[in-house]
Design a protein around this nucleic acid. Structure first.
Lengths: 370, 370
DNA sequence: ACCTCAGATGAATCGTGAA
DNA sequence: CTTCACGATTCATCTGAGG
C-alpha cells in the first residue's frame, strides 16, 4: 500500500504574510507562498540605471565596439534574467483571474513589457502617469522627463479580470477614464523623512497613483501583493481602501519604515468602499417576468424609439410584429434591420400620453425582488 | 600583388532617392542606400494589433478597424525578427551622429524598444502623444486608449545629436518642452481621402506631430528617411520645413498618393526656418572681452544679486573681493559659498541708480560681433 | 453670414453565461 | 469544445444640411 502523497507545503503561509511586510528576496518569497494567493500584484522594480557608465572606461576612453556590445548585452541580459524570474514568480502567486501592474521608465519598461508578453501575460493598457511637477532637465539636452509608464496586464489572455469601469468613470467627472493620468509626484507631508530630514526612500510613489490602481482593478477584501514594497505605499493604500496586502522588501530599514507608516493608516469605513456595480453584474430579468407579474398586460402595444415601429406583447413574453415574432431584442433588431438590439431600451409603452421605456418596468421588478 | 579591393557600390544612389518616394521593401531598400546618408530616421512600423473580431459602437455602427494585411504577423517571434531587421538597416543608413524616432502602441512598442536597446541604440526620451480626441472604449472594458508612444534614440550612446532646445522651449511658451505632447489625431481636411470618400491610409499621422519631431531633432537641409512612408506625412513636413526626405513604401497606391500630396506642399521661406540657437551653440564670450571692449571699465564695482556681495573688476577680466580673486563664476560661487555659479547672471553693475546684470553686456557684444 | 443639430468617425488586442 | 441569446456600451471633433 502506497503512502499518501504529501503536497509540499509552502514555506511561507498566507497567514504569516497577509497584511505584513515580509523581509527577503522577492523571488524566493513569492515562490514560497501558496500558488494563486493574490488577486493583484503591483510591482515597482529597480530601473537598472548602471548601463551608461559601462560604456566608458575609467580613463574615459571609448570601449571597443565589439566588447561593448558584449558587455552591454550581458548587462541587459542580466536585467532581463532578473525580470523574467520575478515575473515567473508573479505568475505563481497570482490567481488565474489575477492581474499585474508594473511601473517603470524608458530605461527598463520596454524590457519588462516584452518579457511579460513573452510569459503570456496579456496587456490591457499602458498607462501614462503625467507628473504635474517633474524635475526639469537642467542641462537642456533632452525633453523634460515628465512621465512614467505603467503596464496593466492579466495573467492569462482568456481570463476575466476586475475592472471597476463605473468607479473610474465617476472619478473622472462621468467621462471614461483615459490612459493618461495627471497626478503630482510624492512630496510634502506624504513623503517619508528620517529624523535627519533625509528621504526614507528615493522613489516613493504617491498614494493617489496607487489609489487609482487599487480602485480600478480590485474589490474590497482582495489580496494585493507588492514584491518591491519599498516605503509601503501599496500597503498604506490597500489598508485605507479595505484591501489586504502582502509586502515583500529585502531592505530592513525600508520594511521597518513601511510597517510604521501602515500602522498609522486609518481604514476607510466599509460603507464608503462600495462602488457602483456595472449593469452587467445585476441579476438578469427575463421580459416574460414583467408580463407574468402584470406590469404589462398581454396585448399592450409597444413603440420603437424612432416611433416608426410597433409591436404587440404576447402572454409568453414575446412580441409580435406584422411579419415576425420573437424576443424584445430580436424584434428590436428585426424592425430596424440592425444586427443586434437592446429591447429593454428600444421598446416603449404609452402611459398618460407619454412613451416610457420598458426598462423602467425591469427596474421596478428588480427593486421589488431584492 | 593583390588586386585593389573594390567597395561594393550601393544599388540605390542617394540622388535617386533624395526627396523621392522609393517603392519596395524597406529593409532591402535601406541596405541598398549608401551608408550614413541620413541624419534622422522616422519610423511608423506596423503595430501588430492582433484584432480578433469586429467591433460595433453602442449605436450598432461598425468601427472601421485596421485589418490591413501589412499589420498581420504570425507571432511575436516573427514580429521581433522583422523589427530587428529593419532596425539593423536603419543603423546602416544613419550617420554616426544620426537619430531615430519610432512610434507605436502597447502592442508593439515594448518589443521595438527592447530590440533597439539590444542593437545599441541609446534612448534619449520616450515621448507620449496624448490624443485630444481618441476613440472611446465602447464596451467599458478598459481605459480609453488615449495615447501613443514615441521613442527617440541615437545611433550610438557616445555621439552628439541634434536637439533644438531653444526652439522647443519657444514652442512651449518659454517653458521646457515636456515628454508628453498634446496633439489631436489626424482628421478633417488634413486626412487624405479617395474619390469614394474612403481613407487613403488607415493610420495617417498628423502633420503637427511630425512638425515637432522635425523641428526638435533636425537642422534645415538635413536628410530624413522614413522606411514606412505610408501617406507621406514625414515627406510633407520635411518639404514644408526645408529638410530633405527619403520615403520608402512598398504599396504603390500609398506611394502614389504621397507623391501627389508632397508635390502640393509649399515650402516655408528660408528665413523662417532658423530657430534660436541654444546658448551653448552661440559663440562663447569671455568676460575679459567685455572689459577689453570698454563696455565695463576696470575698477567698476559689481554687486551680487542678493546685494550682500561686492567685487571689483580688474583689467584682465577677473574679479577681486575682500579675500580672493578669480573669474566672475568663481567669485560668484565663492561669496555665496556655493559649489558653482553663473557669474553672468549673478553679478550686476550700476547704471543710473539701477542694477543691471552683466549678461546684458554679453548680449550687446554678441550682437556687435555677428 | 451665422447658428444649430444630426450624423459620421478615429491604430481597438472591447462581453457573458447557459446549453 | 462551440453556439446562441441576452443586452451592455462612446467622446471629441469635423462635416454638411437646414434654418
Amino acid at each position: 500500500m502506497a503512502l499518501p502523497v504529501k503536497t509540499p507545503k509552502p514555506i511561507l503561509s498566507l497567514d504569516a504574510a497577509l497584511d505584513r511586510v515580509v523581509e527577503g528576496d522577492c523571488i524566493e518569497r513569492m515562490m514560497s507562498l501558496p500558488p494563486g494567493c493574490a488577486d493583484l500584484v503591483f510591482a515597482d522594480p529597480p530601473y537598472n540605471l548602471q548601463l551608461k557608465s559601462e560604456l566608458r572606461r575609467p580613463d574615459n576612453s571609448q570601449v571597443d565596439a565589439v566588447n561593448d556590445n558584449w558587455d552591454k548585452f550581458a548587462s541587459f541580459a542580466e536585467y532581463d534574467k532578473f525580470t523574467r524570474q520575478w515575473l515567473a514568480a508573479v505568475k505563481h502567486v497570482l490567481k488565474d483571474t489575477g492581474a499585474l501592474w508594473v511601473i517603470g521608465s524608458y530605461h527598463n519598461i520596454f524590457r519588462v513589457g516584452a518579457a511579460l508578453q513573452d510569459l503570456d501575460f496579456w496587456v490591457l493598457n499602458d498607462i501614462i502617469w503625467r507628473k504635474a511637477n517633474p524635475m526639469p532637465n537642467f542641462k537642456g539636452t533632452r525633453f523634460t522627463n515628465a512621465h512614467e509608464t505603467l503596464i496593466w496586464a492579466t495573467k492569462n489572455p482568456e481570463q476575466k479580470y476586475t475592472f471597476n469601469y463605473e468607479a473610474m468613470k465617476a472619478l473622472n467627472d462621468d467621462l471614461q477614464m483615459r490612459s493618461d493620468w495627471d497626478i503630482p509626484i510624492c512630496s510634502g507631508k506624504e513623503r517619508l523623512k528620517k529624523d535627519n530630514g533625509e528621504k526614507v526612500h528615493s522613489t516613493q510613489k504617491p498614494e493617489s497613483l496607487l489609489y487609482r490602481v487599487v480602485v480600478a482593478s480590485t474589490k474590497p477584501g482582495d489580496v494585493i501583493l507588492d514584491p518591491f514594497f519599498g516605503s509601503g505605499t501599496t500597503g498604506a493604500v490597500a489598508r485605507k481602501l479595505g484591501r489586504h496586502f502582502i509586502g515583500i522588501e529585502r531592505d530592513h530599514e525600508y520594511a521597518s519604515a513601511a510597517r510604521q507608516r501602515i500602522a498609522a493608516v486609518e481604514p476607510a469605513p466599509d460603507e464608503c468602499l462600495q462602488t457602483n456595480k456595472s449593469k452587467r453584474a445585476e441579476p438578469r430579468i427575463p421580459f416574460g417576468w414583467v408580463v407574468e407579474r402584470g406590469l404589462l398586460p398581454p396585448g399592450t402595444v409597444l413603440h420603437g424609439t424612432q416611433k416608426r415601429h410597433k409591436a404587440k406583447v404576447r402572454a409568453d413574453g414575446t412580441l409580435v410584429c406584422a411579419d415576425a415574432t420573437g424576443s424584445i431584442h430580436q424584434m428590436g433588431a428585426h424592425v430596424q434591420g440592425a444586427p443586434a438590439c437592446n429591447g429593454w431600451t428600444f421598446w416603449q409603452y404609452e402611459q398618460n400620453g407619454k412613451l416610457i421605456p420598458i426598462d423602467v418596468l425591469r427596474q421596478q421588478l428588480r427593486a421589488s425582488i431584492s
